[in-house]
């Protein structure tokens, strides 16, 4: 129950901040635009807080236990999940530095290995081929300007897409 209450408090704080910001929005110059820029956000913000309060009361009353493996580092699946979130964040951060092709191949290899895949040869082929296919389809065929990386990696990418 405690973890859901914390979640509700975080959601409540977000809605309260949203509501506070909505109330700071400038009033409209147009007298017939009764709601103005802030009217609709204020209405849904207030409704959101009311519904959240009702949900929270129910949570307190029912006292359900919710287990979130992500917060339980003693469990291997919890560690695996956190590791994967970190790997994805690193993948996104690296996209603009080493480019799409290399970062995708690296991500596919490291993330699959972190989930427990151990056929290294196959994994290497999968990572390289999938990355090449994605670059080929999206970059070369459909002209999506995928992230290119910096310096010579950038120059190199222009040879492909």
């Amino acid at each position: 129950m405690a973890i859901e209450l914390i979640f509700n408090i975080i959601v409540g704080l977000c809605i309260a901040f949203y509501l506070f910001t909505a109330m700071q929005l400038p009033p409209t110059d147009n007298p017939i635009d009764l709601l103005g820029a802030g009217g609709f956000p204020i209405i849904i913000g207030i409704l959101g807080l009311i519904v959240l309060a009702m949900i929270t009361l129910k949570v307190i009353k029912e006292k359900h236990h919710i287990h979130i493996p992500m917060f339980d580092m003693k469990l291997p699946e919890g560690r695996m999940l956190v590791l994967n979130v970190i790997i994805l964040a690193a993948y996104i951060a690296l996209l603009d530095i080493i480019g799409f092709a290399i970062s995708t191949a690296l991500y596919l290899f490291v993330a699959a290995a972190s989930i427990g895949y151990r056929k290294w040869g196959l994994l290497t082929v999968f990572s390289v081929v999938t990355s090449a296919v994605l670059v080929g389809v999206f970059g070369a065929v459909f002209y999506v300007p995928l992230p290119r990386g910096v310096d010579f990696l950038r120059e190199l990418s222009y040879q492909v897409y």
């Binding site: 994805l88 993948y91 996104i92 996209l95 603009d96 995708t104 991500y107 596919l108 993330a111 699959a112 290995a113 989930i115 427990g116 895949y117 994994l123 999968f126 999938t130 990355s131 994605l134 999206f138 459909f142 999506v144 300007p145 995928l146 992230p147």
Partner: peptide, 25 residues
């Protein structure tokens, strides 16, 4: 595909899908 490969492929496809909307990180 075994799930470790399928799951990571879905993430990579999803990332391209999100990126190509406006070519924006």
């Amino acid at each position: 595909l075994p799930y470790p490969l399928l799951g990571t492929l879905i993430v990579a496809l999803g990332l391209v899908g999100a990126y190509s909307l406006k070519n924006s990180m």
